[in-house]
């Protein structure tokens, strides 16, 4: 994958260590490299809470060239959904919504996945309450 080519077309792209960092237009970038570089598998999407914003890492793989690529984008509370490009993203996006509270625009199926339906808060966020009184095994539990 040629980083300069991406730079020419989409502008703000840079190579940070081994990943391609984009500022915006994530959908367009993924669509472009899917069609032009035969990256046909989205292995996973990883979310990392950095405090001020959340970093999303898209791990792509090409079965033709056996090549890996990582696309990174920093988002606040909303991101573009890529389920039109990769159906597997439906699973990843739902998990990230459940754990980080990121809304993926274009994905209608977002719901609480591992947590109960009426749960408040997103557990993998760094500001998530640590001493949760809703948990039955907490000594100060509401349900004790």
């Amino acid at each position: 994958m040629d980083i300069n080519e991406l730079k020419d077309i989409f502008g703000e792209c840079e190579l940070c260590q081994d990943k391609v960092c984009v500022k915006s237009k994530l959908y367009e970038v993924l669509e472009y490299i899917k069609n032009n570089y035969s990256f046909n598998v989205l292995k996973s999407i990883t979310a990392v809470d950095l405090g001020s914003d959340v970093e999303l890492l898209y791990r792509l793989f090409s079965t033709e060239d056996e090549e890996n690529a990582v696309i990174s984008i920093k988002v606040q509370n909303e991101a573009d959904s890529v389920i039109d490009l990769f159906e597997s993203a439906r699973a990843d996006e739902n998990e990230i919504y459940d754990m980080f509270g990121i809304k993926f625009i274009g994905n209608e199926d977002l719901k609480r996945l591992y947590m109960p339906e009426n749960w408040e808060g997103f557990p993998l966020r760094k500001d998530y309450v640590q001493d949760d009184t809703r948990l039955a095994w907490n000594d100060n539990s509401d349900n004790a």
Binding site: N40, T63, F86
Partner: peptide, 8 residues
């Protein structure tokens, strides 16, 4: 195969 790859 294409479906399998698309669904990872």
């Amino acid at each position: 195969p294409t479906t399998a790859l698309n669904y990872s």
